[in-house]
Every structure is written in C-alpha cells, then in structure tokens.
Design a protein around this nucleic acid. Structure first.
Lengths: 213, 213
DNA sequence: ACCAGGTCTTTTACTCGTAAAAGATGCTCG
DNA sequence: CGAGCATCTTTTACGAGTAAAAGACCTGGT
C-alpha cells in the first residue's frame, strides 16, 4: 500500500504503495502481517480465508502469544492487496494507473490549482514521485502547469479539459466497480465496516503518521 | 501495498506491492481508493479521518454518485499503508524487511522445507522476488537450500538455526507492537472488525485472485 | 544592501519488484 | 526410446518509487 488511493476506492487520497504498494511498503521492515495460506488446506467451506489458516499455524508454533492483532492487521493488509488488483480494471481501461488517477482526482475534487507539494500531501506520496507523474501526465495533455507569479519557486498545476474529461469518464465506472466488488458482503457488514474502519484510521492518523519526504 | 505480510501483522501473507503499496500496488490501475485530505481542514475534533473529507469533496463534485464503497475501500487502503509504516519497527531493529520476514515466517510456521514456488505462493509474491530474497537471506545465513534428490528442478529451502532464532526473537516484539498499535481501538471494535474483515476477505479470495506469475 | 537560512521542486543514484524469456529437468505417449 | 510438452527456477530488462543532494528562489535580520 502502498498507500495510494484517491477515493472511488473508498477514500482517502493518493496511492502508496500499498503500494504498496506495497507497497508495498518501501524498504521498511517486515513484520508478519499476514502470510496467506494458499496451500491446499483442508477446509472446503466458505468463510475460510487465508489469514485464518496462517494464524492457526502461528498459534501452533507459539501457543503463548496473542495472535489477535494478526487477525485484524493481516486481513487489512491482504484485503488492500486484493482490492488494489481487483479494483483497478476501469482505470486500466482508461490508460491510467492508480497513482496517476489519485493525482488527477486530487485536482478534480479540490477544484483548484495545486502545487506539486500539495499534490504530494494529498496523494500521500513523495515529492519526487509527483514530479515524475506530472511530467507524464503533462506529456499526455491531462494537466497543465504554470509558474506562480508571486513566488517563482512554486508551480501551479491544474487539470486540462482532457484531464477533467478523463476523471469524469472514469469515476462512475470506478465507483460502480467498487460497488460490485463489495457486493456479496451483507448489507449489515457493509454498514458496520465503514465506521469501524473510520475509528481505526482516525487513531492511526492521530499519530503524525510518518510524513512523506 | 504493497501488500506484504506474513502475519504478526494480522494476516495474510506476503507482500504485494502494496507497496506494495503499493504502492503500492504495482502497475495496476488506479481507482480512487482514498486520497487523503491532509490539508488543513476545518474540523478539529477527534474521529475525523482523511477519508471522510475526501469523500465529502467527491460528493460535492458528483452529487449523484454513490460514494459508499469509498468509505470502506479507501479506508482499508489507507489503514494498510499506515499500518505497514507503523508496524515494522521491530523488524527494522532486527535488520529485516517485511518481505524477508514473511518468507522466514512461512518457513517457521509451516515447520517444514518449502520450495521457492511454495514460498512464492505463501508470501503472495512473484517467483523472481523469492529468488532474490533467498539469495540475500542465504548470504546472511538465515536459510539453507539443498536440491531435491527426486527432482532436480526443485530446490528445498529451510531455516537455519540462526534463521529460526531471528524469527523467534522478533515475533513476540512484533505481536506486542501490533497490539499497541491497535490499542486505543475499543475492545468492542476490535472484536467486531476481525470477523467482518474475514467475511470481506473470504469473498475477495473466492475469486481466483490474480495468481502470481 | 547583503547574507544566512528556509522553502519548494527537481535531479541523481539506487533499490526493489515485476514480466517475460531462458535454462534445466521431468514426464507422457506414440 | 525419444520427441514434445509441462514444470520449476533463475536471469534479464525495465519501470517505479524513494532518499538525499542539488538548484532556484524567498525572507528576515543587521
């Protein structure tokens, strides 16, 4: 997760490697956030996820440890990974990657010009990454840049007409696609997940949250 | 996304790019999964997450669209991104990245020798990535490989004593760290999240789920 | 005015992961 | 038996992201 997103996918902002892109996570560290248990496995039934089996294996190895956190964190990580693969079909059709869409989306939702630095913060990515993406999106005619007259260090980036059309053309399909991915989830579950995740995310964001370079 | 994990983090398996993050998410596509709203924002209070603000912006732009999916998917992506940054402190201290830990963890939890292909499936990463990690972990003396006598195409990988010590030394700290990250989340919320995420993950994994190369 | 220090963006060097091709075996079937 | 195809792993080529340094530009104090 990377941590990239801009919202049709539900929310936040820019990409990440969730990223992760992974980041996914860059050269961070590597705790056990949920290795799957892709191998055969006995249980046939529904409702079995790979994380459950991995947790079972770990408990057998370390009977004394509390594996509770794995069941939440591992699942979030795994869900994010699968969602990012499944989620991006409409974007791919439009010839956009998620980080690119996140950037365009930030401009569209805020409705104003943004500087590269602001875009980096909105999309939770590094300034260097934004520079590269702007170069590509500019070459494709989706964004324009002009210098700020007041402060010549600063650039101001805005969507072109084609850029806005691209976002407006993809967004409905993206939201519909995400809706489809979540279908099959009981209505009750859907209603409960959002607030619970909001609480968790609020806590996580409370801490400074490792600002980007 | 990346999307790498092996469990202490809660779950699933290997990385992803998340990323991989990914992003994160590798070169997938880019729906709006939750661009943050890092900018000022008016609301001061607690319980405000960045995704909420992004959703608000999108709704203002597209009043007719159902932004519900964003509130779940965007938050999952953003949580995964933040968790992967916050989560890996103990691993870093041990000199391991998460993908490396995922690999070692797969060997530890299964308790047997695995082939590179099996490791790739367990850790949800590509075979090429496993090859590279095995080279590094082998050079550090954490894993050993020997040829399978029956089938010389196949390699068999196992933890060395040092490798097992590394996992056993880090795992408790990692779980404790993850527990700390989740503290602050009400006990009720903690109890509800795991089964809800399990249901979602089960659905997501039901589909083939883009097998790795 | 000048200069030390800070801000904003881009560039550079590097790492990591992937996809696709290449190698090396094993297996089946005529 | 051996040709052709499948399987397992590694290699190659490349794209993307990051951190850190470099550039360019403001600003406040003296």
């Amino acid at each position: 997760m990377r941590a990239t997103e801009d919202l049709p996918a539900g929310g936040g902002g820019p990409a990440e490697g969730a990223r992760r892109a992974d980041d996914g996570t860059p050269a961070g560290e590597a705790l056990p956030a949920g290795a799957g248990v892709p191998t055969g496995e006995g249980a046939p039934g529904a409702g079995q996820d790979t994380v459950a089996e991995v947790v079972r294996q770990w408990r057998a190895v370390y009977p004394g440890l509390d594996t509770g956190p794995m069941e939440i964190i591992g699942r979030i990580n795994r869900c994010a990974a699968l969602l990012q693969q499944a989620e991006d079909a409409p974007l791919g059709r439009a010839g956009l990657t998620r980080p690119e869409f996140d950037l365009l989306g930030a401009l569209r939702r805020t409705g104003r010009e943004l500087t590269p630095g602001e875009l980096a913060r909105e999309t939770f990515s590094s300034g260097a990454a934004v520079t590269k993406r702007l170069k590509q999106l500019g070459a494709r005619g989706l964004v324009e840049r002009r210098g700020d007259p007041r402060d010549r260090r600063v650039a101001r980036v805005r969507l072109t007409g084609a850029g806005q059309e691209a976002v407006d053309g993809v967004m409905p399909a993206q939201l519909a696609h995400e809706s489809a991915v979540l279908s099959g989830l009981g209505g009750a579950a859907r209603g409960e997940l959002a607030p619970l995740l909001a609480e968790l995310l609020g806590r996580l964001e409370g801490r400074p949250g490792t600002p980007r370079t």
